[in-house]
Simulated assay, not measured.
Amino acid sequence: MKTAPTYAVASVDHALRLATMLQLEGSLTVAEAAERVGVARSTAHRLLQMLVYRDFALQDESRVYHAGPVLQLAEHSRSRTARLREAALPHLHRLVDAVGESVNLTIRTGTEARFIASVESAQALRVTSREGMVFPAHRTSGGLLLLAELPADELATLYAVGRDRAAEEGEAGPPDLARLRGDLARIRKQGFAVNQGRSEKGVVAVGVPVRASDGTAVACVSVSMPSVRYDRERLPSLVATLQMAAGGIGTELARG
Rank of each mutant, 00 (worst) to 15 (best):
P5E: 09
R181H: 09
R78G: 06
T140D: 07
G250H: 10
Q49P: 01
L95W: 04
R186A: 13
T109Q: 10
A245C: 15
G170S: 11
V210D: 11
L48S: 11
M50D: 13
A217M: 11
L150W: 07
V223I: 10
H45L: 14
A44P: 12
P174G: 09
L155H: 03
P226T: 01
S129D: 08
G162K: 00
P174L: 02
S213A: 15
E252M: 15
E25P: 03
S222M: 07
R188M: 06
V39M: 14
M225V: 01
Q196E: 13
A34Y: 11
E169D: 05
E131Q: 12
E169T: 09
D183Y: 06
V119R: 12
E61S: 14
R186N: 09
P209M: 05
E168H: 09
V37Y: 03
V96L: 05
A117Q: 05
V203H: 04
V127N: 01
L48T: 07
A19K: 04
A245L: 14
L105G: 05
R229Q: 04
R179F: 01
C220N: 15
G100F: 01
S227G: 07
A205N: 09
D183V: 05
T157C: 05
L180Q: 02
D183N: 05
S199R: 04
H66M: 03
E252P: 10
Q123M: 00
E75L: 10
P209G: 01
V239C: 04
T157G: 05
R126T: 03
Y159V: 02
D176W: 00
T109F: 01
N195A: 09
H66K: 08
R41P: 13
S227Q: 13
V64F: 03
L177G: 08
G142P: 08
V12R: 13
V52T: 09
A31Y: 09
L89W: 08
L180D: 02
S129W: 00
V203W: 02
T111K: 00
D231I: 01
L158Y: 05
E120G: 01
H138F: 12
V206Y: 03
D231L: 10
G142F: 07
E25H: 14
V203D: 09
A137V: 03
P90G: 12
V134E: 06
R63E: 15
R80D: 12
L92N: 10
S213E: 15
R130G: 11
A44K: 03
G132K: 00
S27G: 11
L48M: 06
A57G: 07
K189G: 07
L84P: 06
E200M: 06
H76W: 10
L150P: 10
E120W: 00
L71G: 07
A205L: 02
P136G: 07
V119W: 01
L105S: 05
V161R: 06
D97V: 03
G132D: 02
T20H: 08
L105V: 09
V52A: 08
T81M: 05
T251E: 15
R126E: 00
G143C: 08
V103F: 09
E112G: 00
V96D: 06
A74Y: 06
L145E: 07
V228Q: 10
T251R: 15
A245K: 13
A82M: 06
I116D: 03
L16W: 02
A40R: 14
D97R: 10
Y7V: 14
M1S: 15
A137Q: 07
S224E: 12
A34W: 14
Y159N: 03
G191S: 11
G202A: 08
V208P: 02
Q196F: 02
A8H: 10
E252D: 15
D55V: 00
T128Q: 01
